[in-house]
Amino acid sequence: KWTITVQGEEAIKWAIKVAEARNLDYTVHIDGDQAHITIE
Rank of each mutant, 00 (worst) to 15 (best):
K1H: 07
K1Y: 10
K1V: 11
K1P: 08
K1W: 09
K1M: 09
K1L: 08
K1I: 09
K1N: 08
W2H: 05
W2Q: 03
T3L: 09
T3W: 06
T3M: 09
T3E: 05
T3P: 01
T3N: 04
I4Q: 02
I4D: 00
I4E: 01
I4K: 01
I4L: 10
T5H: 09
T5I: 14
T5V: 12
T5A: 05
T5E: 04
T5G: 02
V6D: 01
V6N: 00
V6S: 01
V6Y: 03
V6L: 08
Q7Y: 14
Q7G: 04
Q7K: 14
Q7T: 14
Q7I: 14
Q7H: 12
G8S: 05
G8T: 05
G8D: 03
G8K: 02
E9R: 08
E9H: 12
E9D: 10
E9S: 11
E10K: 10
E10V: 09
E10Y: 07
E10M: 11
E10N: 10
E10C: 13
A11I: 04
A11R: 11
A11D: 05
A11P: 02
I12M: 09
I12R: 05
I12E: 01
I12H: 01
I12W: 05
I12T: 04
I12Y: 07
I12N: 01
I12Q: 02
K13I: 10
K13T: 06
K13G: 06
K13P: 01
K13V: 07
K13M: 10
W14F: 08
W14R: 08
W14V: 05
W14H: 09
W14K: 08
W14A: 11
W14M: 10
W14N: 08
A15V: 14
A15K: 01
A15T: 06
A15C: 06
A15M: 10
A15Y: 13
A15G: 01
I16A: 01
I16K: 03
I16F: 03
I16E: 03
I16M: 06
I16G: 01
I16Q: 04
K17T: 10
K17I: 11
K17A: 15
K17N: 09
K17G: 12
V18M: 14
V18D: 12
V18T: 08
V18K: 06
V18R: 06
V18L: 13
V18Q: 14
V18W: 15
A19I: 15
A19W: 04
A19Y: 07
A19M: 15
A19G: 02
A19D: 02
A19V: 14
A19P: 00
E20T: 10
E20I: 12
E20K: 06
E20A: 06
E20G: 04
E20Y: 03
E20C: 11
A21T: 11
A21K: 08
A21Q: 12
A21Y: 12
R22K: 14
R22Q: 15
R22I: 15
R22F: 15
R22G: 14
R22Y: 15
R22C: 13
N23W: 05
N23E: 11
N23I: 04
N23S: 07
N23Q: 12
N23A: 11
N23F: 07
N23K: 12
L24W: 15
L24F: 09
L24H: 05
L24D: 04
L24I: 05
D25E: 14
D25S: 14
D25H: 14
D25N: 14
D25T: 14
Y26E: 00
Y26L: 04
Y26W: 08
Y26T: 02
Y26I: 10
Y26R: 00
T27P: 01
T27R: 07
T27F: 09
T27A: 07
T27E: 09
T27K: 09
T27M: 07
T27S: 10
V28D: 00
V28W: 06
V28T: 02
V28S: 02
V28G: 01
V28F: 05
H29E: 13
H29V: 15
H29I: 15
H29A: 10
H29S: 10
H29Q: 13
H29F: 13
H29N: 08
H29T: 13
H29K: 12
I30Y: 15
I30T: 05
I30L: 11
I30Q: 06
I30H: 07
I30V: 11
I30N: 04
D31C: 11
D31R: 07
D31I: 12
D31Y: 10
D31G: 03
G32K: 05
G32L: 04
G32V: 03
G32W: 04
G32Q: 04
G32M: 04
D33M: 10
D33V: 07
D33F: 08
D33W: 07
D33S: 09
D33H: 08
D33E: 11
Q34F: 15
Q34A: 11
Q34E: 08
Q34S: 12
Q34R: 13
Q34L: 15
Q34W: 15
A35N: 03
A35Q: 03
A35R: 04
H36D: 04
H36T: 14
H36A: 06
H36V: 14
H36K: 10
H36N: 05
H36F: 13
I37M: 05
I37L: 07
I37A: 01
I37D: 00
I37C: 02
I37G: 00
T38L: 06
T38I: 13
T38V: 13
T38P: 00
T38Q: 05
T38K: 04
I39Y: 10
I39L: 10
I39V: 07
I39P: 00
I39W: 11
E40G: 11
E40F: 15
E40H: 15
E40N: 14
E40A: 13
E40V: 14
E40R: 13
